[in-house]
Design a binder for these strands. Sequence first.
RNA 1: CGGGGCGUGGCGCAGUCUGGUAGCGCACCUGCUUUGGGAGCAGGGGGCCGCUGGUUCAAAUCCAGCCGCCCCGACCA
Length: 440
Amino acid sequence: MRLTRYFLPTLKETPAEAQIASHRLMLRAGMVRQAGAGIYSWLPLGFRVLKRIETIVHEEMQRAGAHAVLMPTMQLADLWRESGRYDAYGPEMLRIRDRHGRDMLYGPTNEEQITQIMRDDIQSYRDLPRNLYHIQWKFRDEIRPRFGVMRGREFLMKDAYSFDLDFESARRSYNTMFVAYLRTYARMGLRAIPLQADSGPIGGDLSHEFVILAATGETRVHADRRLLDMDAACSGIDYDGDLEPVVRAWTSLYAASDDKHDPETAPVSGSDLLVARGIEVGHIFYFGTKYSEAMGASVAMPDGERRLLHGGSYGIGVSRLAGAIIEACHDDAGIIWPDSVAPFDAGIVNLKTGDPLCDSIAAAAEERLHAAGLEVLHDDRDERAGVKFSDMDLIGLPWQIIVGPRGAASSRVELKRRADGQRLDLSLDDAVPCILDSRT
RNA sequence: CGGGGCGUGGCGCAGUCUGGUAGCGCACCUGCUUUGGGAGCAGGGGGCCGCUGGUUCAAAUCCAGCCGCCCCGACCA
């Protein structure tokens, strides 16, 4: 992709409203623009990141046996009256009336909608267990949206819903999601810590929130330091096997949010205790028959008895992750994307556009990387070197291929790793495998 | 919602107290010079001063109402 044909409106100065690093950098890097309080447009660069996050989430959900669907953003109030949440949810729910005077709402979550689907289309115990998920925009009319996309009113969320015959089976579904979440965050270059959580307004009695460590996080985490040494990628996991030991290994280590942490009773202290800030990027719940009972979702058992479905719901804040990743991965110059979610795998900086040799090497580099299956952003603007360097550092692509008159004569380019600033002077032929190797 | 603050070219701001017809830096356009870490000079374009009403010969400036946005608090992916 040639930058002169792209839409990448970077800013040299920081807009006044941006307080935290991720918000500042997302605005400066031309990823998002604010449309209203807590409402954002995603520009090309930001949209790419969103899509790459989605891809990882999709892959891990499907690996864990969940199936992708797409439920609507607009829901009928009557459905929510069945569960009792139309009144219970409060002013955070955006209520709308259509031209016929029907009460509707912009979905803050989808338990009712998915329960209706299961109720209507699953009749036998043979059809269970099932786990359906979607990635869809949500709206929660927060009292005070802030921190850019980290706490917007409109946000993109992956929400999965499991349905099982009984608690034991539901617990397996819960464990499956638990592991899938660890893997998902690990693939994004994040270290997630599961905290025992209150189940909140969704209800239920088995719940964990996943928090990633970042200096600017909103919640303070107190955790057993050994959690940092755990294998978050859960390599070699077998979802058909017993996941209980894996989940227990994680949950047996102490981890508590600030409000739950009591230094008197905490089993770890001193240097064994990690005290850090974190950002909540996921939350999983088992809520039993809360919705199936209220809404009449049951299946026939072998003996003809009807049995209520046991449900769980599992959320990942996809748009929040875009911000959270930046909070965890940036420096003074800008963003440092993990390879797996970077909007482009590499950037090409042509330091002397208009020079036939530099132009041809830069063009060849773009072609070569593209042929290798890499996404690449080619800065072919007629700008000064400093402008290009700082923009490239700002948008944080993992690799930079710098083409300049110094190396051009001997057909060499400079390969710079954004994360550590390391530079290698090599031929184009040698640069491509370097970049390929860094991708997982 | 309670408390605080702000709204002036795309971005960052000054001007408001003390009314007199809008300015600075960056960005943008043209030209020349420059060219490995946010260039220099010259010229140029762009503003319903958030909106509505009021006071006044005259309002960005004073008054009233409204709208929007940000920050601190209680809530959340």
